[in-house]
Nucleic acid binder design. Structure first.
Length: 702
RNA sequence: GGGCGCUUAGCUCAGUUGGUAGAGCAACUCUUUUACACAGAGAAGGUCAGGGGUUCGAAUCCCUUAGCGCCCACCA
């Protein structure tokens, strides 16, 4: 009897949640529970989604690809572990939460840090559990029993150990450096967390005593601590080392003229005012020449008390007013009104960042990068797509020290203590009185960068010994520097072994018009809604086929609809096979006709091609081949030619064909399972299979 | 200022080491034949951005031009 459900179109809603429960109850997501044949470990560490909202299309891509890999390897007999996680996502989450506070008419500033932290924790944990449900809906066959959160105690301990080791190795230091400060978010940011924006601003030529010099920021002049010229500039030789005195806007000014290679004689007049507190280049000059650092812009982007009557003005207002006053005082020679330059902005709020000199923690990256550069040059890491190798090498080669201090509460507190001029690193308060704990937290990527070994319980756990290094890191190309590069460096630094040897980078998912999905454009599609509407299998196929590594992929409903039809096609093929082959003898008792032998060979070619394509990370091609075979070979040709055979009188041909149809269907389900796990498992339950077990742990066809 | 990617059928994109151009969707014609109308059969559609070169042969390799997009970069 053909089950009644096959007489109706396929309805994913009735099937998917039920099937996921079957899988989860089976325990086979946990590699420890897999049958004995699963010996060699195969590990993927899931990029932990930020627990501050819903899963988006990009998450659906990683679930699709990583689940495909894991299911494939599990079927091939690997001891497959896909380790799920959730990321507290420091600054990102804090920004999301601040927006929520704003909507409620509240603000984080002035809030008790402990209370704020507790509130964000509650928010994050709620999102985390919500997202876990969504990952299940997308069919993720990950081992929930091993799920990690980036704020788990053991993870924090590992992060602290790394920090202490870096400190002991002189690879981390606390120093006053020029950092990128966001006046809205009230924190410093790393170089990667900045964007740049091209601007057209006036370039002011100001008179400084005997000199004229060009600047776009006249408002920082009160923080000047020197003037600089190029050491070989013939125009200014006599001034080098001399002091100049002149009357400024708020009183007399005395500045020494220094010589530094940094000055470009061809720009402006060849004379630069050095304002170390508010310009990163000037800061470096100040370090070389031991210049004082005078802060005149405060943390809110306002001029401070050192600016006389201009105190309290915002930078932008001050600039205009000061330019006018300079003009009136005859101190402005000219203005170039259309000077093109770029400014650094906060990648979250797009406000112009203020360079500020603050005591912060920095990681010396050059020595961490060096061994990774060598490993990449020796091709110990394979990148998909290939050209990321070059991009990675370029970035690692030009890497700078990394500011890991953030002035936000939502993060792992930096384990450091201060007393007068003393600095101690460690989780516990040092002996003695007067120690004050650091209030800054780590850049979230500092801990994320340690995720592969931290999540596996380095150094003591057996999981670490069994599952590290992992096989492949699959993630978004846009976080290659933020995350992938740091994992390689920290992984090698802490464990002596690269955390993975294959990096697969998928591209951004866009809307059909190729535009990036964003709330403001209103073109965001929710993968969960699409899954509800068309089924997860269809969504996953749409995200697999036509999706090549490193390039953007357009996701739109028509495409998903096509794969919903494909699911239905498989459903109806099954119905045909069940209706016709119920009393089929087993293959071993049947000898195939010549035609059917040809069909078996054709099927074997398919197996070979699909296997090869998956092994070589061409999932889109494997998926397309399967789609094409199932629809246009199996359904259109084989089933059509079977009809007269099955109704005819040639018993040998009939039995051969029945056995063939069943074999093809079984093989297709096996091959399709990593792509469309739900419908294949559901059908598997209803067709005759010798020694049947769950499809998810059945053997991949050879 | 460097670096990278893309440009193939109306739309979205494949095309693995060079061997007579592919898929899905859309549009067209026919067909309700007991797996499926969430279907089938058939036809149509491209000088593979332009130009040059290597080769017996190039969408595929090299050079070049143009358009689009991205990343990196401390010049006031």
């Amino acid at each position: 009897m053909v089950p009644e459900k096959f007489l109706k179109p396929y309805t994913p809603r009735d099937v998917e949640p039920k099937i996921y429960q079957v899988w989860e109850k089976s325990g086979f997501f946990n590699p420890d529970n897999l049958p004995r044949r699963h010996t060699d470990p195969y590990t993927i560490i899931m990029p932990p989604p930020n627990a501050n909202g819903s899963l988006h299309a990009g998450h659906a891509v990683f679930v699709t690809i990583e689940d495909l890999l894991i299911r494939y390897q599990r079927m091939r007999g690997k001891k497959a572990l896909w380790l799920p996680g959730a990321d507290h996502a420091g600054f990102e989450t804090q920004v999301v939460y601040e927006k929520k506070l704003e909507k409620e008419g509240r603000t984080r500033f002035g809030m008790d840090p402990e209370k704020l932290r507790a509130e964000i924790m509650e928010f994050t944990l709620a999102n985390k559990s919500f997202m876990e449900g969504q990952l299940r809906q997308l069919g993720a066959s990950c081992d929930w029993s091993r799920e990690k959160f980036t704020l788990d105690d053991d993870v924090i301990d590992t992060v602290y150990d790394t920090f202490e080791k870096l400190h002991a190795d002189n690879l981390v230091y606390r120093g006053k450096r020029s950092v990128n400060w966001c006046t809205k978010h009230q924190t410093s940011l790393s170089e990667l967390e900045t964007s740049s924006e091209e601007r057209v601003d006036p370039l002011y030529y100001m008179k400084y005593g005997p000199f004229v010099l060009a600047t776009v920021r006249p408002e920082t002049k009160f923080g000047d601590t020197a003037l600089a010229v190029h050491p070989n500039d013939p125009r200014y030789q006599e001034w080098i080392g001399k002091e100049i005195k002149f009357e400024g806007l708020i009183g007399p000014v005395t500045l020494t003229v220094i010589a530094d290679e940094y000055v470009d004689p061809a720009f402006g007049t060849g004379v630069v005012k050095i304002t170390p507190a508010h310009d990163p280049n000037d800061f470096l000059v100040a370090l070389r020449h031991n210049l004082p650092i005078v802060e005149v812009v405060d943390q809110y982007g306002k001029l401070n008390e050192k600016c006389g009557k201009y105190a309290g003005l915002k930078v932008e207002e001050a600039r205009k007013i000061i330019a006018e006053d300079l003009e009136r005082a005859g101190l402005l020679e000219k203005i170039d009104p259309e000077y093109k330059h770029t400014v650094k902005t906060c990648y979250k709020c797009e406000r112009v960042l203020e360079p500020r000199v603050l005591p912060q923690w920095f990681v010396n990256m050059k020595s961490l990068a060096q061994p990774v550069i060598q490993a990449i040059e020796r091709d110990e890491i394979t990148f998909y797509p290939e050209h990321y190798k070059k991009i990675m090498l370029h970035w690692l080669t030009n890497i700078e020290d990394w500011n890991v201090s953030r002035q936000i509460v939502w993060g792992i507190p930096i384990p450091a203590w201060y007393r007068d001029d003393e600095v101690r690193v460690g989780k516990e308060k040092p002996e003695g009185d007067g120690w004050v704990r650091e209030t800054d937290t780590f850049d979230t990527w500092f801990s994320s960068g340690q995720w592969p070994f931290a999540a596996l319980g380095y150094p003591k756990s057996t999981d670490f010994k069994t599952f590290y290094p992992t096989q492949v890191m699959e993630t978004a190309g846009e976080i290659i520097f933020f995350w992938v590069a740091r994992m390689l460096m920290f992984g090698l630094y802490r464990t002596g072994t690269l955390p993975f040897t294959t990096v697969y980078l998928h591209g951004i998912v866009t809307a059909k018009d190729g535009q990036k999905m964003s709330k403001s454009r209103g073109n965001v599609v929710s993968p969960l809604e699409l899954s509800d509407k068309y089924g997860t299998d269809a969504l996953r196929m749409a995200l697999t086929i036509g999706n090549t590594p490193g390039t953007t992929t357009a996701l739109y409903e028509d495409k998903i609809k096509a794969y919903k039809l494909f699911a239905n096609k498989i459903w109806n093929i099954t119905r045909f096979v069940l209706e016709n082959c119920e009393e089929s003898p087993l293959e071993k008792d049947v000898s195939y006709t010549e035609t059917d032998t040809g069909r078996v060979q054709e099927l074997q070619n398919l197996i070979r091609e699909v296997t090869k394509n998956i092994d070589e990370y061409r999932f889109y091609m494997a998926g397309e081949k399967l789609y094409h075979y199932v629809w246009h070979t199996l359904a259109d040709d084989i089933i059509e030619e079977s009809k007269p055979l099955l109704q005819g009188n040639d018993l040998l041909a009939k039995n051969s064909r029945k056995a063939l149809l069943l074999e093809i269907l079984r093989t297709c389900l096996l091959l399709l399972h990593p792509f469309m796990p739900f419908i294949t498992e559901e059908i598997w339950e209803h067709i005759p299979v010798p020694d049947k077990k769950l499809l998810m742990i059945s053997s991949w066809p050879e």
